[in-house]
Design a protein around this nucleic acid. Sequence first.
DNA 1: ATGCCTTTGTGAACGCGTGCACAAAGATGG
DNA 2: CCATCTTTGTGCACGCGTTCACAAAGGCAT
Lengths: 253, 253
Amino acid sequence: MATGRTHRPATRSRGIPEATVARLPLYLRALTALSERSVPTVSSEELAAAAGVNSAKLRKDFSYLGSYGTRGVGYDVEYLVYQISRELGLTQDWPVVIVGIGNLGAALANYGGFASRGFRVAALIDADPAMAGKPVAGLPVRHTDELESIITENGVSIGVIATPAGAAQQVCDRLVAAGVTSILNFAPTVLSVPEGVDVRKVDLSIELQILAFHEQRKAGEESMPSAGQPRAEVRAPEGGKGPDGEIPAVMPA
Amino acid sequence: MATGRTHRPATRSRGIPEATVARLPLYLRALTALSERSVPTVSSEELAAAAGVNSAKLRKDFSYLGSYGTRGVGYDVEYLVYQISRELGLTQDWPVVIVGIGNLGAALANYGGFASRGFRVAALIDADPAMAGKPVAGLPVRHTDELESIITENGVSIGVIATPAGAAQQVCDRLVAAGVTSILNFAPTVLSVPEGVDVRKVDLSIELQILAFHEQRKAGEESMPSAGQPRAEVRAPEGGKGPDGEIPAVMPA
DNA sequence: ATGCCTTTGTGAACGCGTGCACAAAGATGG
DNA sequence: CCATCTTTGTGCACGCGTTCACAAAGGCAT
């Protein structure tokens, strides 16, 4: 096995579907906004609208957490904020390290969303010796040599990888070996990790390509009457990349 | 309707499942790497390993595009790169605007992944007059006033929002009104858009919270024999946010 | 040319997620 | 205390996505 291991055997966590878990932060954000406006209760319909989901889905999601609503009234905002926070594990502090303090890493370090709820940037780590000691977002950048000691001393279990793609797997391996069991990967690479380690990836170019696909579809559909394969003319790939700029298109049949 | 509209009626595009579309960029990346190493052909097994997916899934994904493989041999790397690129619409140039040139916006502008395949940063836009004209990633930052004209003059259909959450919906509305039909949202907000506009979001804090959930589960499970609700002690929420730091936990039954 | 071996392409089964629609539950007013 | 009205919680059905397993297809050696 070279790169990936995408089977998810035990992802389903104690009866809470993964899809629900992914929406809880959304609900929490909407609820926090309501809480700040001192709204006491909210119906599933209202909250669902605020979170951009179906109200039935929201109710079913909440049903996995327990019966926290009051029929005829709705949900107590403060109470629900607390319950979801607890379920997500945000009632405790999660020290996080960011590895790779380039443009993106620095932006992440400065991002307020980190410190806000339960997450604390324990250290910024970069391989460039010239970066060492320089303050970024109020923290001195540490050198990669210190990675293991930082992890163990701070009890870090969540690592953020913002390195170039080439360094990501190596950094990942070191993080895991040092005790990190959750990784948020911003590098455009598939990371290979042992069982028990969670990896989530954020990939700009993948998102853009998905958008481009739909964009192309929209553009192609509106100008075409009913043809099967409408695409006007397609440039053969010839850009910088390949050494031989020849056209590989050999449409078989 | 305040915020969201997440129903997806016509997402399924011309027979290609959305899940497949989301994986095509992954395959493309793996194939490009093979292409650079001048590997002529690749089997579904090898490619699947490189992309971190199941080989059966990969074959089924490719089957939606057509019969591009050769039984007993595998897939022609160059040919497949071309086919996937074409399907994703990467054979044409997509001008993109980035709105909100803060830390994150600047990082995105500097990100190489943009220019690489089919995407070209047409303009960087920020609301701060002090930013106007300042070069970021080799491009002068333009003021928000010019947003509409930039969109129309460059034929921009994809917009990236990297503004603070408070400005995101407003920026989104202006982008859409000016003709943008695909949006990549980095702001932590649910965007409301009219039908026909695609929105994809990248949300750091949501990803972290999902990781925290699983992390909490791992930690709770390994130290507990078989108890039902093991969580040791849970701090009541009392942090900075709310004006009244009172405990909303009133466990009902 | 023939048989073997490898690998694709896909039919079928299964499981997860979603949404409908409704009964149960509680609040509220008379 | 009872009727009514609102809103939750959920049983059920449906569709999408994943995976298995295998037949068909093609290359290759003899």
